[in-house]
Design a binder for these strands. Structure first.
Length: 291
DNA sequence: ACCGCACCCTGAGCGC
DNA sequence: TGCGCTCAGGGTGCGG
């Protein structure tokens, strides 16, 4: 599940093989709600454009194009943006991987989930966007136009401050975790890092946001920045030339304190990690360490 | 205005 | 061996 760190790692990996190249071919799967811009229009808009930059806003990637338009990409839950020819074992399930001969395992061919394929004038490797569950999004933004999705985003989570959380949480009855997941307050925090930051800050996910102290807000902001920066570091070093579809499956898993550790002992006090559902999301915490 | 919740989708994993 | 069920959660939108 790509959260800010996974998206940032993707951006860094893809940029050198995307920025500066001129799009000469656009292939797409059948229209679906994955395409906020319909495939025929997308093809028309992208063809011939040169990619000027690849930026990130929260969990969104935005490619700036040479005519002033922009291509918005959101990875959703299972989105993967990668370069053709990447050795990409993680792109296949373990079962389908097992059916391949060893020499085939490093080659990924576009499948029914590979919704967008960008070819380039230089004839080099294509850039592919694959998304099994189609929770991801692709949208072309006209020159000078803004996008409601981007407009709604709060400050990037890497720039989180206690002041932001303090101001946003006053008199709110929403659970502290749901406050962290609100992209209009901080952009980029997802389920995993919300649970981790709450644990490191000693805040129970269910606590009402209005009951957070200023010190809690400072701790949360600091820990959000900390877990994200650390994840980008480890993700960047462990992900060589493929992109894992599962944040919990990356190098950061070794440092997880609570996420997906239901029933396992808390690393601080030994009490079993609890799992509840909050805001439709699996939520993990330690009853002893988080008040 | 705020908040809880249903929904979009597919594959993995599990019990029988 | 295979079927049916549950779970995973980012983001949108609706109803209370």
């Amino acid at each position: 599940m790509p959260e800010l760190p996974e998206v940032e790692v993707t951006r860094r990996k893809i940029s050198p093989k995307f920025v500066g190249r001129t799009i000469a071919a656009v292939h797409m799967t059948a229209d679906s709600y994955f395409f906020l811009t319909k495939p025929p229009e997308l093809k028309r808009r992208l063809n011939g454009r040169t990619v000027a930059a690849l930026e990130r806003h929260g969990k969104y990637l935005v490619a700036a194009l040479d005519d002033g338009s922009r291509l918005l990409l959101h990875l959703g839950m299972t989105g993967q943006l990668f370069v053709q020819g990447s050795s990409s074992l993680r792109l296949l399930s373990s079962t389908s991987r097992a059916s391949l001969r060893p020499e085939e395992q490093s080659i990924f061919k576009p499948d029914s989930h590979t919704h967008l394929r960008l070819g380039f004038k230089d004839g080099g490797p294509e850039v592919w966007f694959r998304d099994v569950r189609k929770f991801g999004k692709v949208k072309w933004i006209a020159p000078g136009e803004t996008d409601e999705r981007l407009n709604r985003l709060g400050p990037d989570a890497l720039e989180a401050t206690g002041e932001i959380l303090w101001a946003a949480s006053r008199k709110k009855t929403v659970a502290a975790k749901n406050l962290l997941l609100d992209q209009s307050i901080l952009a980029g925090v997802g389920n995993i890092y919300a649970d981790e930051a709450l644990f490191l800050s000693g805040v129970r996910p269910t606590r009402k946001a209005g009951k957070l102290t200023r010190a809690d807000c400072d701790a949360l902001a600091q820990n959000i920045r900390k877990v994200m920066a650390r994840s980008i570091e480890t993700g960047g070093s462990s992900i060589s030339d493929y992109i894992s579809p599962d944040g919990a499956d990356g190098a950061y898993q070794d440092e997880r304190q609570v996420y997906a550790r239901k029933g396992e002992p808390c690393r601080v006090c030994g009490a079993p990690i609890r799992k509840i559902t909050l805001g439709q999301r699996g939520t993990h915490f330690c009853r002893v360490c988080q008040k």
